[in-house]
Simulated scan of single mutants.
Amino acid sequence: MTNTQDDTLDRGGSRTPQQIAELFAIAGRETEAIEQAHRLRRAACTRSRPPRPRLASLTPAEVRAALEFRRGGIGEAQ
């Protein structure tokens, strides 16, 4: 197996300032990507929450009517 520059760097070899700057840039992009994923997940969760209180306030008759509507109507063949 041949040694590459990356193999040497992974084992603690000498790094140039440019290589170190590149490592910081990669780490910064990784952190930003993780933060962006967290923001998107929070936004998706927030969008799903508003209907819940409204659904909780429905009467049993309203829930039955909505379920029947979703099933295709009262008395229709499935």
Rank of each mutant, 00 (worst) to 15 (best):
S57A: 14
T8G: 08
C45F: 13
A33W: 05
Q18H: 08
T4W: 00
D6Y: 01
I34H: 12
L9V: 05
Q19G: 11
Q36K: 09
A33T: 10
G12V: 00
S48Q: 14
A25G: 11
T2D: 14
E35Y: 02
P17S: 04
F24E: 15
T46A: 14
T46Y: 09
T8I: 13
P51L: 04
S14V: 15
N3D: 14
I26V: 07
I74W: 12
E30N: 09
L40A: 09
A27V: 09
P50K: 00
Q5F: 05
G13K: 02
G72V: 01
A56M: 09
L40E: 12
Q19W: 01
I74S: 14
E22D: 11
G28M: 06
F69N: 12
L40V: 08
A61V: 09
P53E: 11
L67C: 15
Q78H: 15
G73K: 01
R47M: 11
R64T: 15
E30F: 06
C45N: 14
I20H: 12
I26N: 12
T31V: 11
T46Q: 14
V63T: 07
A66L: 12
I74F: 10
T8C: 08
N3L: 05
Q78L: 10
A65S: 12
R29V: 04
V63F: 02
T46I: 10
D7F: 00
P50R: 00
D10I: 02
Q18P: 07
Q5M: 01
E22V: 06
F24N: 11
S57I: 01
M1V: 04
R42C: 03
D10A: 05
G13F: 04
T31A: 13
Q36D: 15
T59N: 01
A21S: 06
S57F: 04
D7W: 00
S57N: 13
Q78V: 11
L40Q: 09
N3P: 10
P60D: 03
T59R: 00
E30A: 05
Q18N: 05
P50S: 02
T2H: 08
P60Y: 03
L9W: 00
D10P: 00
E76H: 11
